[in-house]
Design a binder for these strands. Structure first.
Lengths: 111, 111
DNA sequence: GTCAAGGTACGACTGATTTCGTACCTGAGT
DNA sequence: ACTCAGGTACGAAATCAGTCGTACCTTGAC
């Protein structure tokens, strides 16, 4: 019931290479731009992103984001919560979330 | 003699996805961190980066960086110059170069 | 207990990316 | 003209990353 937090790397263990590789994928980046744009940093469900991919692939992408240290995944057993590690990311890579947030603006009307 | 500037995308045509994909590779990122850390923005030769890869592969990587809009390549025929498009990158993705520059510090003593 | 929804594990397929071998081009110097 | 160093073009090999099918687990509702 309480939901266990699946662990990612510590703040000072975040590596730019891993983060950039995580953000290189369109689907993962769309998740991150949404998270970065939501200043309330509320926990979100995995399905709230409407990704056009199977759930197995979603599992894969969220894991990559977590292992990159960008998000926390809270496991409720039959459901999962996603939360941006805003403070950690911002302290280690200041300005990165701003770039993603900016992308969210024109991300709704691409090209 | 005058060296023709191989063209990359215009400033407002720069796309975050392409840029991040370009920066996802270790070798390309090492080039970019060096360029970002050098505030003189002087033109550099391709060999001044000491990349541990063949010259064909270097050609490939520099092309990716140029097509992402991160660098200019100046073709002298039998030699090539590399220059960071600092103003363009900074205006389109403010803060990105700072992230790369920060990486250059501990990039010399990895792990 | 049974069932359905949400999620994961594992394996396979596929397409993209990195890498380099071979061959060729260009300009500077001799 | 020849040579050499730096670069490119093309293609092949190898590796990596995204995707999904099948099977299984977990929790909550009935």
């Amino acid at each position: 019931m309480a939901g266990t937090n699946l662990v990612g790397p510590a703040v000072d263990a975040l590596e730019l290479g891993v983060v950039l590789r995580a953000l290189a994928d369109e689907h993962r980046r769309s998740v991150m731009t949404e998270l970065a744009a939501d200043r309330t940093d509320s926990e979100r469900g995995c399905n709230s992103f409407a990704l056009p991919i199977s759930k197995q692939t979603q599992t894969h992408h969220f894991r990559v984001l977590r292992e990159a240290g960008l998000i926390d995944e809270i496991d409720y057993g039959n459901r999962k919560g996603i939360r941006l590690r805003r403070a950690d990311v911002e302290s280690r890579f200041p300005g990165l979330l701003a770039l993603l947030e900016a992308e969210h603006q024109d991300g709704t009307a691409p090209r």
